[in-house]
Write a protein that binds this DNA or RNA. Sequence first.
DNA 1: TTGTACGCGTTATCAC
DNA 2: GTGATAACGCGTACAA
Lengths: 336, 336
Amino acid sequence: MNKQTVTIYDVAREAEVSMATVSRVVNGNTNVKPSTREKVMKVIEKLDYRPNAVARGLASRRTTTVGVIIPDITNLYFSSFALGIDDIAAMYDYSIIMANADQGREEKVVTDILSRQVDGLVYLGHTMTDKIRHEVERTRTPIVLAGMIDPEGKMPSVHIDYESAVAEAVSRLFDQGIEDVAFISAPEYQVDDELGRFNGYKKALASHNKDLDSALCLTAENSRYRAAEEVGQELIDSKAQAAMIIGDELAAGVSNYVQDKGLKVPEDISIVSSNNSIITEIVRPQLTTIAPPLYDIGAVAMRILTKLMGDKSVEEEVIENKNILPYKIIVRDSTK
Amino acid sequence: MNKQTVTIYDVAREAEVSMATVSRVVNGNTNVKPSTREKVMKVIEKLDYRPNAVARGLASRRTTTVGVIIPDITNLYFSSFALGIDDIAAMYDYSIIMANADQGREEKVVTDILSRQVDGLVYLGHTMTDKIRHEVERTRTPIVLAGMIDPEGKMPSVHIDYESAVAEAVSRLFDQGIEDVAFISAPEYQVDDELGRFNGYKKALASHNKDLDSALCLTAENSRYRAAEEVGQELIDSKAQAAMIIGDELAAGVSNYVQDKGLKVPEDISIVSSNNSIITEIVRPQLTTIAPPLYDIGAVAMRILTKLMGDKSVEEEVIENKNILPYKIIVRDSTK
DNA sequence: TTGTACGCGTTATCAC
DNA sequence: GTGATAACGCGTACAA
């Protein structure tokens, strides 16, 4: 297991300087005479020396590593966030420890990642439990939520106003004369989150003087394509002539299902999706959808995190607690 | 920036034992009297002590962290690998440092990740440059390639026999009486990789006494959905009545494009895709496709890596250099 | 501009 | 079973 062999000390000896000087050279400290800097650089080259980031992390108490908690990498919704996070992180020379936090493993995952002394955390989960909150606060690790908002309003977050987005999309259906619009999603989206999707649905109902009809709130097992069958049938059996569906895979699945059953989209049933991933363009008819700037949400979250982690140059900057990015609604062929 | 405050030393003092004993307790060493173990545990609980993984990594020279190099997180092909890797890694309590290595940044990314003293590496790239090879060998870090094979045969790898898979899929088209089958892919798949897709195409041609026609080898800019337009038109303009397409997004794009242009799939053009991601089921007609066990490839790669990293329990086990997993071919409606 | 010496929090090697 | 004590490789006052 002898991996790294050449240390800063070896370089110092070979270059006939102290390790402090080598350290200065490596870290770009200006207080080094150009000639010695060059001498050290040559030895570094010759010995093929690479700084040990672990030792560096221990000594400096900064690991230049951020943790990313993600519920499902294979879900385009989340991986688009991740790409934005990764790009900005790379730009600032941070590495990313990424952990897939499926089905309630979030707490273990967070604890573990914190023990690795990450400088910051981007959290893409659905729920923020008290335990997680406590862990994060205990270690005083900066955290930014992406794609959700802290119910307690303490943690900074980046999100879009899904409430307005859904309200707008659903209202548009009502305004077309559609009487009954179903709301279809996995269980985790059928709650009263701040700026949440379900709230938007209820808001649209209210503004059109309609009551919430639980028969029109359809719950899919999860947000994946295959979960659409059961809920698709429920949609057909309902009186709805349109559906607001959370999750592109689910929406595509429902659209395909109802068409396989002989219905026409949008003539018989209009469908609106929520994330504008490439799936909404692949499926036919192409889906009208809310278009959140997923990549940007990730990128902005990471950018805020770098500030929180104290790139001292920006210490004076004001950091908003809730960063709400603009969304669009893209009308395609799945609605009239 | 004072994050972690309570150390192993604090626990030792409070429990009136030495830090060595605390370390033993934390690491489950059996050589400790049950009563003192209990005493220490209580203090750990009381002080809410968490081991510092960075210090541990420095002292033990093991970080229980593996690096994953991935060309594009938002590509379902790769993220499916990643999920398999992550699941097995979690099982063995390894954390994952994941780096998106787009457009030739692989070398920087690998160098950086190695400086973080990862215990192993899973490499999902397309190309293994000499520089990367050198970096990895210099640090003696175990590595496993997933979804590719080391051209030099030195590094262990997990893959499927895409050559046979493509050959089988294309031969099937020929056997149906189709005269001309196009091969469509991004540039990186139009090379002579071992067990490579392009080789499979040529193999099928050869076994049916056909010559390679460069007019039938169509190159898309990349593997994404939107890259399909141009190449889709080229397909229409060619004499091909079928296409073997590498990448599900690209295949879906081509399928949609030719249909938008008035052609019928499979009546006018048959289409075969390569990865069996959910996209092949979303698009209509559903795509006939090669079905590689993506998740399993990632999982097996990670499992092999754990052995290479020396879980001593398996030190005697023989490790294959090339691990070829079985594939399937799933026939759907995009072929006759 | 450069060097000395201590500290970061843990593991590991000895003794006892 | 337990406890000193020396690494691990580097950053960083503080001195010079």
